[in-house]
Nucleic acid binder design. Structure first.
Lengths: 146, 146
DNA sequence: CGCGTTTAGATGACATGTCAACTACACTGG
DNA sequence: CCAGTGTAGTTGACATGTCATCTAAACGCG
């Protein structure tokens, strides 16, 4: 409060401004190019990475999402035919989620736009040194967020 | 695509994981301590900083918010009696927004919790050098986001 | 087996954000 | 003055996220 630490305040303020504008910009470009939201993109990315049917509970762990958020999201994506849900043989409570052809296509388009935006706005603008610094900062903060 | 730049990918991935978890954590602590959302907190912070009636259009510029988002947010905050809206004398289209006593109190409580969380999760964890780096990274990226 | 406890997931109420109209006032040039 | 254009703000439809609660299946243990 009274012991102002100008450096810390400045750094946080700059970070917050960058974060807000960057998220908005990338989300907008992603949607414009592919019709996918960032949430859609994350789900499809995880499914592509796994490359086989995945249990929602696993997705939830990978992405760090709350289960109700995931449930709503999967329902909406199934309605839009981006994914397919089948009931799970091994566990009567569970499901398995698979990419549909449309989901695979949409993800490809989206990934191009996403990578392009990240490159144009971030990685291309930063020096290798700054990229190392950014990774270091994130990896320093992350362990304290559990 | 094919020209993988592992450093860039790593840095972006780390950043994204930090960003997602950090936002969630801070938002939750803020709400738990004060009952305010991050959106509420931003508005009240801007009003406190100005310390006089502010036009919504000015708030929109300061915060970089879309006007409809701002309109919805101000309506909800007025309903909860965190702010007061009066019609503007100089401009018949406009309004002036003021902090209520409740808004001022809630903001004080929230600021304590917010600053504490930012300190615990971020500024305290990073070295002065890293804080300088973070500010530098944000200020490097920001100019390209208009 | 049978009963209590986890676990997977769904659901409904509600807060928030975006987009596309829409209203109403202000300004500007003829 | 006044018609056209710009600006401030609202509104409604809809997507998304959180929380609390609910169902049903799995598990664990006497």
């Amino acid at each position: 409060m009274d012991t102002a630490a100008p450096l810390a305040l400045d750094a946080w303020d700059s970070y917050q401004r960058m974060r807000a504008r960057l998220s908005a910009r990338i989300a907008r470009e992603l949607t414009a190019a592919s019709g996918l939201s960032e949430a859609d993109y994350e789900i499809l990315g995880a499914l592509t990475h796994e490359d086989r049917p995945v249990r929602p509970v696993t997705l939830g762990q990978c992405l760090g999402w709350e289960k109700s958020r995931l449930s709503h999201q999967l329902r909406r994506m199934e309605q839009r035919a981006l994914i397919v849900r089948t009931s799970c043989v091994e566990d009567g409570r569970g499901q398995e989620v698979t990419l549909s052809a449309a989901g695979r296509d949409a993800y490809r388009t989206a990934k191009t736009a996403y990578d392009d935006a990240v490159c144009r706005y971030v990685t291309q603008r930063l020096s290798d040194e700054q990229l190392v610094q950014l990774r270091g900062i994130a990896e320093t903060v992350l362990p304290h967020l559990d």
